[in-house]
């Protein structure tokens, strides 16, 4: 009896010890490892929330080819196929020079507008510490429609065609699902309808996304103008821009579908010169398609390449 009792004790102590052994191996492996400070990734799925910029930049060496459509107003009715007959298209090429610097060029059928984009990530949200990501986005747009007929002797200055937008983007990914962003913005119009109006429109934008599944998110974006709200554009009253959308992600593509009262796709257009109104049913359906290409590979892959192909 005594012997078997001792055996049991010995056996149990061995098993406890061997358990401790396993644990001590784990402990040894993990001692001295500090919680790692990591950037919070994927605040938004795309570099635009809907119309305007999100804090997302393209990675270094990544080229993004985007095709954007905004159709006519839904209330144009069946004769215009609810706006589908009135489509405008924009083509964008964006490129990530470094992970914090991104540039882009684009052309929009609407107003024959060319634009350039510069986006700089200033602060990056971290899992420990920094609570927000802050970026600067600057855009220059040039309207290239033919000059209006002017009285003889007058010339249509090139600078009449230029518009500038400066934005600070402040975003926080609150959870895997919810990200919110604020965008204080200023748009400078070199030319406005009348001297009554200021050349500058200040606005505060707010946007966000809520993921409803791993690959689908609901998005929203609103630009509230703080000044120049009475500005007319082509003789028409202007409204704040409001858009709701869905992001659908499939591998290398992101599809963004939206309803918006802004048909323009440049900041100067949708922030200050939105002439359509949700309450009047002047809603545009549209979509963005984005496809990324790797132009410059990360250094880890330069030599791994030969092995893989």
């Amino acid at each position: 009896m005594r012997k078997s009792l001792l055996l049991i004790i010995l056996f149990s102590s061995v098993s406890v010890l061997s358990f401790a052994q396993d644990d001590s191996l784990l402990n040894m492996l993990n001692t001295g490892i500090k919680p790692k400070k990591e950037p919070v990734s994927a605040t938004f799925k795309a570099t635009r929330i809907i119309d305007g910029n999100s804090v997302e930049n393209l990675g270094a060496g990544i080229l993004d080819f985007r095709i954007l459509h905004r159709f006519g107003q839904l209330n144009q009715g069946a004769s215009n196929f609810y706006g589908l007959d009135d489509a405008t298209t924009k083509i964008d090429l964006d490129y990530g020079i470094t992970k914090w610097l991104m540039v882009g060029i684009g052309h929009n059928v609407l107003n024959k507008e060319d634009d350039g984009l510069l986006k700089i990530k200033l602060l990056q949200q971290q899992n420990i510490g920094m609570p927000v990501t802050v970026s600067y986005a600057g855009a220059l747009s040039i309207q290239t429609t033919p000059a209006p007929t002017l009285p003889t002797g007058d010339t249509w200055k090139f600078t009449n065609r230029l518009y500038y937008t400066n934005q600070i983007l402040i975003a926080r990914k609150f959870s895997n699902r919810l990200s919110l962003q604020l965008m204080p913005s200023i748009v400078h119009y070199n030319l406005v309808d009348s001297t009554k109006f200021s050349n500058n429109t200040f606005a505060l934008g707010a946007g966000g996304r809520f993921k409803i599944s791993k690959r689908i998110a609901i998005t929203g974006e609103y630009y509230y103008r703080l000044s120049n709200t009475d500005m007319l554009y082509n003789g028409q009253p202007t409204y704040n821009s409001f858009s709701v959308g869905i992001d659908i992600e499939t591998g290398g593509h992101v599809f963004q579908l939206m309803l918006t009262n802004s048909q323009s796709l440049s900041e100067r257009g949708f922030i200050g010169q939105t002439t359509d109104s949700w309450s009047k049913g002047q809603i545009h359906f549209g979509f963005n398609i984005s496809r990324v290409f790797t132009i410059v590979k990360p250094k880890e892959f330069k030599d791994a390449d030969n092995k893989k192909w």
Binding site: N30, A42, G251, T294, F301
Partner: peptide
């Protein structure tokens, strides 16, 4: 006894978007 521990976020992809999708 052998133990391996792999921090999942430390996987590097050639395409950053893939890395994001991998993690997310």
């Amino acid at each position: 006894d052998i133990i391996f521990q792999v921090p999942v976020k430390s996987f590097k992809f050639e395409r950053e978007l893939m890395q994001e999708h991998f993690n997310e």
